[in-house]
């Protein structure tokens, strides 16, 4: 076995690691695409990213591997989760396609693209792997730093500017300018009295709850659920739990039974 050939092959340990983790990463990626709930997708993606970090380490990119874990899985994915929570953690994405032919086209394009890429790589004649032993001889991070601060120093500075711009941009996009002074508690109370719409505090949710009750609306005397009893945010997200007619029927039967037992005539009607 020649030296060149030796450099182009990896150890058995790495091969085992590649096949095990590689398959896991593909599954994670597929789950990211196919999971109904955004939060599940995010978790799968985080897993895939950690596997990628391991691969980076295996390929001698120690710095990148650590950065991948810290920045991607630690910061970016958490940012994703924050937004998912903001938008509604349980809001499931319907997987039925609305655009005509979109799924077929996507599948066709994806398949073709993948085949072409793999064919391209197969044709590329990548036979020699030099390894990073020589460039890492003076220390891996030091070698990276030398490149970043000499050859790539302009790009590096510009990415700094880019990050600052992105931070300012995110703030500008999400910032809501307060155009008037926030109303105080007293003013709110006075306004409520003045308008006379809802003088007492809002009714509590889910009097007949079987869950933790926050997303279950309270029922009015005639048995219809009242929107007032559920938080505005939940209503906006459409996360108000449906109080089905069946449950109300159950309750009705329960009341009737107890009324019969207690001999209350008027309640039986």
């Amino acid at each position: 076995m020649s030296a060149t050939a030796a450099a182009s092959l990896t150890s058995t340990g790495e091969a085992v690691q590649f096949w095990v983790l590689g398959i896991t990463a593909v599954i994670g990626a597929l789950c990211t695409v196919l999971m109904k709930k955004a939060v599940h997708s995010a978790l799968c993606l985080a897993g895939t990213m950690i596997i990628l970090a391991v691969f980076y380490l295996a390929n001698g990119a120690y710095f990148l591997g650590v950065v991948q874990i810290i920045v991607y899985t630690g910061a970016i994915m958490m940012l994703f989760l924050f937004v998912v929570m903001l938008v509604g953690v349980t809001a499931a994405d319907s997987l039925t396609e609305t655009l005509k032919g979109q799924r077929w086209l996507a599948a066709l394009c994806g398949l073709g693209f993948g085949i072409l890429l793999i064919a391209g790589i197969g044709n590329a004649g990548l036979k020699t792997f030099n390894g990073l032993g020589r460039v890492n001889s003076g220390g891996h991070v030091e070698a990276l730093a030398a490149l970043i601060f000499t050859k790539y120093v302009f790009a590096f500075e510009i990415t700094g500017a880019l990050l600052i711009t992105a931070a300012v941009g995110a703030m500008v996009l999400t910032h809501k300018e307060r155009t008037e002074r926030a109303a105080t508690q007293r003013e709110l109370a006075e306004r409520r009295v003045r308008e006379g719409v809802q003088l007492p505090p809002l009714p509590a949710p889910g009097v007949y709850a079987r869950h933790n009750a926050v997303d279950v609306p309270g029922l009015l005397p005639d048995g219809t659920p009242s929107d007032l009893t559920v938080s505005k945010t939940l209503r906006a997200r459409g996360q108000v739990r449906d109080v089905s007619a069946e449950a109300i029927e159950d309750l009705k039967a329960l009341e009737q039974r107890s009324a019969e037992r207690l001999g209350r005539e008027e309640a039986a009607k």
């Binding site: 182009s8 990896t10 590649f18 590689g22 990463a25 593909v26 990626a29 597929l30 990211t32 695409v33 999971m35 955004a38 997708s41 995010a42 895939t48 691969f55 390929n59 994703f80 937004v83 998912v84 938008v87 994405d93 319907s94 396609e97 609305t98 979109q102 799924r103 086209l105 996507a106 599948a107 394009c109 994806g110 693209f113 993948g114 890429l117 793999i118 790589i121 990548l126 792997f129």
Partner: peptide, 27 residues
């Protein structure tokens, strides 16, 4: 080690297909 490239191509294609298929902006 070329297998890493195959894996990268596969992941890229999966991601691209996801962009085409999913409607939730976050996903």
């Amino acid at each position: 080690p070329v297998n890493y490239l195959y894996l990268a191509a596969l992941l890229f294609t999966i991601g691209a297909s996801g962009v085409l298929i999913r409607r939730n902006a976050i996903v």
